[in-house]
Amino acid sequence: MTSMPIDFFRALRSAKIGADDAQKVVESLEGHIAVKITEANASLVTELQSMRKDMGTLRWLLAASIALTGIAGTIGGYLAAVLP
């Protein structure tokens, strides 16, 4: 964890700003930073969610192809055994 809020609070206090006001300024700045980070990451979050959906589709397709390959192999083995 960073000590930036503590250092900022101390800097405000050394500038003769009251403890309550300094605390409000620090909390306001932290809130502003959190909003900006959320805004900056919004497109990345959307892209990751899209990738997760794509991965789910790929998993389903892989499982289906493995199942179909097994079924085809079984049918082929059966036909090879039954047909001369």
Rank of each mutant, 00 (worst) to 15 (best):
Thr2Cys: 04
Phe9Leu: 05
Leu12Thr: 08
Ser65Gln: 09
Ile75Met: 03
Asp20Asn: 08
Ala63Leu: 10
Thr2Asn: 13
Leu62Phe: 11
Gly70Trp: 05
Lys36Phe: 02
Lys24Leu: 04
Ile71His: 01
Leu61Lys: 15
Gly31Glu: 00
Gln49Thr: 15
Leu62Arg: 12
Gly31Phe: 00
Thr2Asp: 13
Leu68Ala: 13
Ala19Trp: 12
Leu44Ala: 13
Ser14Trp: 01
Ser3Asp: 15
Leu62His: 09
Ala42Asn: 08
Ile66Gln: 12
Leu61His: 14
Asp21Gly: 01
Arg59His: 11
Pro84Leu: 04
Ile17Ala: 00
Thr38Arg: 09
Ile6Arg: 15
Leu44His: 11
Trp60Leu: 15
Ile33Asp: 00
Thr38Gln: 07
Ile17His: 00
Gln49Met: 09
Gly76Phe: 06
Ile6Cys: 10
Thr69Phe: 13
Ala34Gly: 07
Met4Glu: 12
Glu30Ala: 15
Gly76Gln: 03
Asn41Glu: 08
Gly31Pro: 01
Gly70Leu: 10
Ile33Pro: 00
Leu44Asp: 06
Asp7Val: 09
Leu79Phe: 09
Leu48Gly: 07
Leu58Pro: 00
Arg52Val: 14
Phe8Met: 05
Phe8Glu: 00
Gly56Met: 09
Ala80Lys: 14
Leu83Ser: 06
Ile6Phe: 15
Asp20Cys: 02
Ala19Tyr: 14
Ser65Met: 06
Ala42Asp: 09
Arg59Ile: 13
Arg13Met: 03
Ile75Tyr: 03
Met4Gln: 12
Glu30Gln: 14
Leu12Asp: 03
Leu48Met: 13
Arg59Trp: 07
Ile37Lys: 08
Glu27Ile: 10
Trp60Ala: 14
Thr38Tyr: 04
Ala80Val: 10
Gly31Gln: 02
